[in-house]
């Protein structure tokens, strides 16, 4: 007991001087709180006779089941198809969103024409395209990738356009004066200038795409995380269902963190600059 209170005191004393360890401690605290809530919920469910069937949602059954799934490689086999679909969907969204974003950012006329249609389309839940996607695509995979692209394209497109609009006009003038051709202007000036905006758009798009993925995989496919959720529900395997939810959360979190690192790396703005 004295040991614990002593170490707690030292942690507290260390807080003001060590900003980094402080944020680590707080993050750990957040995780502990989340686990505690989860555990509390599991306890409430299992102590209620009417909900007893769902007691496997609790941390202990879920995590032991997750450990099994990791060891058997099931986590990998259920994640890879999902990651492929999200990756492909994002790829299409970037391939269309970045050029179109540059165009509407550069040409005021195009922006004026495209603004209303794009804002209109953006507000439609990507999942409402589902029936159309199913009709339009031969494969379930194609339909899912389409839905993900529909969700992911808007943050990328608008973020790119906003970045292009913020480009200092004199950067373009200087480049033109120094003999840049359009290819130079695009690759030496415009793209580096907007790299952060594009990556920020991709990061937002990734979040939306990951959210849309699971319901999209309720469609006919027989692989992926969404399918695994659906399948576990149908087979009443609630430990597996909860373990899959954890997998979805962990992968989503990691992808976002990765994208965050990329944004940081390509950010040329120096906070301490002039």
């Amino acid at each position: 007991m004295t040991d614990l209170s002593q170490s707690l005191t030292s942690v507290r004393l260390g807080l003001p001087s060590l900003g980094r360890s402080r944020s680590v401690v707080n993050a750990a605290l957040g995780i502990v709180l989340l686990m505690a809530l989860w555990w509390l919920g599991g306890w409430a469910v299992s102590s209620n006779p009417r909900l007893f069937a769902f007691s496997n949602f609790a941390p202990v059954p879920t995590l032991s089941r997750l450990w099994q799934m990791i060891q058997s490689g099931e986590v990998i086999t259920m994640s890879v198809p999902s990651l492929e679909r999200v990756g492909l969907g994002l790829l299409y969204a970037v391939a269309i969103g970045v050029p179109v974003g540059i165009l509407i950012g550069r040409v005021a006329r195009v922006n004026e024409i495209a603004n209303v249609p794009f804002q209109f389309l953006r507000m439609i839940s990507p999942l409402s395209w589902m029936p159309i996607a199913v009709l339009a695509f031969d494969t379930w995979d194609g339909a899912i990738v389409f839905l993900i692209s529909m969700a992911a394209i808007w943050p990328i497109l608008f973020s790119t356009a906003a970045g292009v609009r913020r480009i200092d006009p004199s950067w373009l003038k200087v480049a033109r004066n120094l003999g840049a051709n359009p290819f130079h202007t695009l690759f030496v000036v415009i793209l580096p200038a907007i790299a952060v905006d594009v990556l920020t758009g991709i990061r937002l798009a990734l979040g939306v795409a990951w959210v849309v993925l699971v319901p999209a995989e309720y469609l006919g496919v027989t692989s992926g995380l969404g399918y695994a959720i659906n399948d576990a529900r149908d087979t009443l395997d609630y430990a597996r269902l909860a373990a899959t939810v954890v997998v979805i959360g962990v992968i989503g979190f990691s992808l976002d963190a990765l994208a965050g690192q990329l944004v940081k790396k390509f950010n040329w703005v120096r906070q301490d600059g002039h």
Binding site: N177, L178, W268
Partner: peptide
């Protein structure tokens, strides 16, 4: 425009990256 005659502005307009 041509790099044989170069214009400079009030802001240096360097590429910050």
């Amino acid at each position: 425009p041509s790099p044989k005659w170069v214009m400079m502005f009030q802001a240096p307009s360097l590429y910050p990256w």
